[in-house]
């Protein structure tokens, strides 16, 4: 009886570990392949006998950067940052209101906001372009950022409302008893407590904007963001250039996520293992 339960215990551990390894491999393999091939020398890449390249080069990356990827990366960062700023400026107050106040039509309004996310972006692409031309926003980074904001806003509202709702109302009330007004209580109590969650929301917003290709391609011609640039220029190029493009796409996002994640974990001395 005793023995069999020990066996069961370890068997279960082994199975869980196996599944975890499988899941990690599933996620990580494409990364590894595209990173390897992004730096593989041309001959290694085309040699049918070599699976893992032996000679590495920065040539492909350099070529892409020369072609305009540098500019596109900067554009993408600008668009993503503007998107975060606008969607947070609009979304946080809305999220706070949803979290802390009871008002008429709250639930239907929430549903409507989530419903917006189901709206296929394809449908509005053409009207959006016409509208942008009229407003003089076509082919501008602000224009792309505004479109991305529209996509990110429902997400920011819903997520931030649940983050704010997760901060017990007594914490703010205590601050109000001890001398702060509602605004002070928000900035000195709720905001710092919500920051880890909001940082996560910012990461998601960043990645959404960083990855978004369709609207960015439709709305811009010269001011391409990175995915739009890659779609139009790199896709006609040889395969190793495509892998290099993939790497350029992944790399900044990965760095950003790692930094933000570390910030999340070390906040308030709370270590999440």
């Amino acid at each position: 009886m005793e023995e069999s339960s020990i066996v069961k215990y370890y068997l279960r551990k082994i199975i869980v570990a196996g599944l975890v390894i499988l899941a990690v491999l599933w996620v990580i393999t494409p990364f590894v392949i595209s990173i390897l091939y992004a730096f593989a020398s041309k001959t290694d890449y085309y040699s049918p006998n070599i699976l893992i390249p032996l000679h590495y080069t920065l040539e492909h990356i350099q070529k892409l950067l020369d072609l305009g990827a540098t500019r596109a990366i900067i554009n993408s960062v600008i668009v993503a940052v503007i998107t975060i700023i606008i969607s947070f400026a609009l979304g946080l107050p809305a999220g706070y209101a949803f979290a802390k106040f009871v008002f008429r039509g709250k639930d239907s309004l929430k549903l409507l906001i989530i419903g917006l996310r189901m709206f296929p972006i394809l449908v509005i692409a053409v009207p959006l372009v016409t509208l942008y031309i009229r407003l003089g926003l076509n082919d501008t980074l602000l224009g792309v950022a505004l479109a991305h904001t529209a996509m990110a806003l429902p997400f920011v509202i819903i997520i931030s409302s649940s983050i704010f709702a997760g901060v017990p109302k007594e914490l703010e009330e205590a601050a109000m008893i001890f001398g702060l007004d509602r605004k002070g209580a928000f900035f000195r109590i709720t905001m710092p407590l919500a920051l880890p969650g909001l940082t996560a929301a910012a990461i998601f917003t960043f990645i959404m904007s960083w990855n978004e290709v369709f609207i960015a391609s439709v709305l811009t011609l010269t001011n391409r963001t990175l995915p739009a640039f890659i779609l139009t220029s790199a896709m006609a190029a040889p395969d190793f250039i495509k892998f290099a493009a993939g790497f350029i796409m992944i790399f900044p996002a990965m760095v950003f996520v790692f930094i933000a994640r570390k910030y999340l974990i070390t906040m308030w001395g709370i270590t999440l293992k």
């Binding site: 017990p168 007594e170 009330e173 205590a174 601050a175 407590l193």
Partner: peptide
């Protein structure tokens, strides 16, 4: 006030 739920600030 001492709150029933303490309401001390975690950060």
């Amino acid at each position: 006030m001492v709150f029933q739920s303490y309401a001390i600030w975690p950060h």
